[in-house]
């Protein structure tokens, strides 16, 4: 059973990575990162069941809390960028190019 859960978790994680790499919209990129974190959460809970320990549950809760904090900051940045440029395509942000 545990293999199935871990496979699903890794699959979701890879989907998230794909989303971050291929999408150009800031909003979708942040959503993909959330997907990666939630994939990890699924893995934590499954492994906690496998090892019969509570560490995984605690870590999953912590990840949720941190993901919420990060989402709050990300949304603030999205609003900030929209105010400046009126668009959320990452290609138009090119002031810092080295």
């Amino acid at each position: 059973m545990i293999e199935h859960y871990l496979s699903l978790s890794v699959l979701l994680f890879c989907l998230g990575v794909l989303g971050v790499i291929s999408r150009r919209n800031v909003f979708v990129v942040f959503m993909s990162i959330e997907l990666m974190l939630n994939a990890a959460n699924l893995g934590f809970v499954a492994v906690a069941r496998l090892h019969q320990s509570m560490d995984g549950h605690v870590l999953a809760l912590m990840v949720m809390a941190v993901a919420a904090a990060e989402a709050a900051l990300a949304l603030a940045v999205v609003i900030l960028l929209h105010k400046h440029k009126g668009n959320l395509d990452t290609n138009i942000f090119s002031l810092l190019k080295g």
């Binding site: 990129v29 974190l37 893995g43 560490d55 870590l59």
Partner: peptide, 18 residues
């Protein structure tokens, strides 16, 4: 964007190590 991306990698790494 990149920091959160790296953070997600860390979390997945922690899952596998665990």
């Amino acid at each position: 964007m990149l920091g959160a991306f790296a953070g997600a990698f860390y979390v997945m790494g922690a899952v596998l190590v665990y």
